[in-house]
Design a protein around this nucleic acid. Structure first.
Lengths: 113, 113
DNA sequence: CAGTATCCCGTTAGATACTG
DNA sequence: CAGTATCTAACGGGATACTG
């Protein structure tokens, strides 16, 4: 369970699932949509999701090549929780930021590093 | 947002929040409840959650010392999404496991190392 | 009890270069 | 386009020892 949570909860996995919630996407679309992800990490993330049965990978042998990723039914069942989490983060980002500044300022006062 | 997700999505944070969903807990209770966490990681995780305003830390200057951790309102607002995620994992663990074995077996066939 | 302080190693992720 | 391969710096996290 720890291991599954670590994988599902992984930031790249969450962002990828959020992207795929909008429907089938190509590799390059995902990379453009997920800010900051490297080619390597996108590949590894997609392989992991595929392995866990959350995503299917379909290759079109055209030139140039084209690969499409789609959520499986299992993957879609994960949408609700994951999107809820994502929305929570977006909604509460300002409050977290404030809390951090307060915490850091207090640490500073106590003789911060 | 990436950074917040990375922190929230962290396995220890999720498990800690799940533990604290049951109410206020002492340091040692948390350590016993979260299987596999080290003293160091529990301390670091709690500091992070405290910094982000999700958890409060209350020290009782008794002998022996006693420290209690409680979810803040912000932390409690995170309960729903986090617990939903945890429940999804528990509910779908078998299916994920099956998918993995299938995937690994297929890789094996294709000459997987 | 509830930490803090070190040491240290394995994994991870970013950058870069190459390919079917 | 959609990867794979390789190298390396950074980080995570365990073990251990010490303390208010």
């Amino acid at each position: 369970m720890r291991e599954i949570l670590a994988k599902i909860g992984d930031k790249w996995s969450i962002l990828t699932i959020m992207m795929l919630s909008g429907g089938t996407r190509r590799f390059s679309e995902l990379q453009r949509g997920i800010e900051g992800i490297s080619q390597r990490m996108l590949t590894l993330t997609l392989r992991g999701l595929e392995r866990d049965g959350l995503v299917t990978r379909e290759v079109f042998p055209t030139i140039p090549p084209r690969v499409e990723y789609t959520l499986t039914p299992l993957g879609r069942s994960l949408q609700q929780p994951v999107i809820a989490l994502g929305q929570w983060v977006v909604a509460n980002l300002p409050e977290i930021d404030t809390a951090r500044r307060r915490f850091d300022a207090a640490a500073e006062d106590r003789g911060g590093n």
